[in-house]
Amino acid sequence: MSDRDFLLSFGRFKNEFLRQAGLEKNQYGVLDAFEKWLRMYHNNNVDENDKVPPSGIYLDVHKDREVLLNEICRRVEQKLLQRGIVVKCISAARWGKARSSALCLVLPGFQDVFYRLCFTQPRKGIYSGRKILMSELVLDGHKKSLFLPLLNYHSEMERRLDFRLERESLHMEQAGRYRFKICFPVEQEKIPASKLEEIARVVARFIIVSSEYLEKVNAAQIG
């Protein structure tokens, strides 16, 4: 097994362990620290040409779904770490989605605010019936404290991202789902591995930009 395959397998085993063990959040520390050390050790001890998969490699959206999500999360974590931002990548089981392959990136200081990465196929809206890879900032339960204040910066965030920033439908927001999301249509059954770097770059930028405004809104309320 190659180092890269080992790291991807470790991510899957870690998520499954967390799902089954039922640990409290304050018990994740050593495991998270070990994973970050393992990834950094790997990055410092591989050839530069091995860090980006060859463009000729394709990953099946159905068979390799968890591998795709883990690989994107790994790349996002690395890009954020370069900016001094440390996030925790955990499975959606932490929020009661035991059968979901979705992964959640959690910022320090925000216990129930997180970024969710998943594959989905909306039934309504502009992506109706289409398969998409989606990253969303989940703000459920924070309508007045975070979501509504962030709406004031919606256009500004979108301009800085240079990428369409979606909201939930009015019906879903009325039901309590308050989210901002970016979507990548998956038109074919297989995704070239070379595309993962581009997706990770946009997702990392989404987290960097939106987290700046989260901090800004928080500071305004505390002040």
Rank of each mutant, 00 (worst) to 15 (best):
L81G: 09
S101N: 14
E197N: 10
V202N: 06
P108T: 15
S155G: 12
E35W: 14
Y127N: 01
A93M: 04
M172I: 07
L196W: 00
Y58D: 09
P122R: 05
S9D: 08
A21V: 13
D5V: 10
D60R: 13
R4Q: 03
F206L: 09
E66Y: 03
L161W: 07
F206H: 08
E24K: 05
L133H: 03
M157E: 08
N218G: 04
G141K: 01
Q20T: 11
N152V: 08
L148S: 04
V186F: 01
S155K: 15
Y153C: 07
S210W: 02
Y153P: 06
R164M: 05
M40I: 10
K79Q: 15
Y41G: 04
D140E: 08
G129K: 06
R167P: 03
F110S: 07
K124H: 03
G11H: 15
S2N: 09
V202M: 11
D112R: 11
K79T: 15
M1A: 03
N152D: 14
H171P: 03
A200V: 11
D140L: 01
K63T: 12
K195Q: 08
K51P: 04
R159C: 12
R4E: 02
L31W: 06
S2T: 15
S55Q: 13
A102C: 05
I191Y: 00
L133Y: 02
R160L: 14
N44I: 08
E16P: 03
N49M: 12
Y28I: 09
K143G: 04
K63M: 11
Q27N: 10
D32V: 14
L18V: 11
P122F: 01
K79V: 09
C118E: 14
K181A: 09
Q111G: 04
I57G: 04
P54M: 10
R160A: 11
L107P: 07
D112F: 00
V30K: 08
L161S: 10
Y178V: 06
I182Y: 01
K131L: 13
H42V: 07
D50N: 12
R83P: 01
N26R: 12
Q20I: 10
F13T: 13
F110T: 10
F206G: 06
E16W: 07
G223S: 15
S55H: 12
Y213I: 07
N49R: 14
I85Y: 00
E158G: 07
P54H: 06
Q188D: 14
V202D: 07
E24R: 09
E48D: 14
R167L: 13
G96I: 02
C89N: 06
F10V: 11
R39S: 13
H62S: 10
L150M: 13
V52L: 05
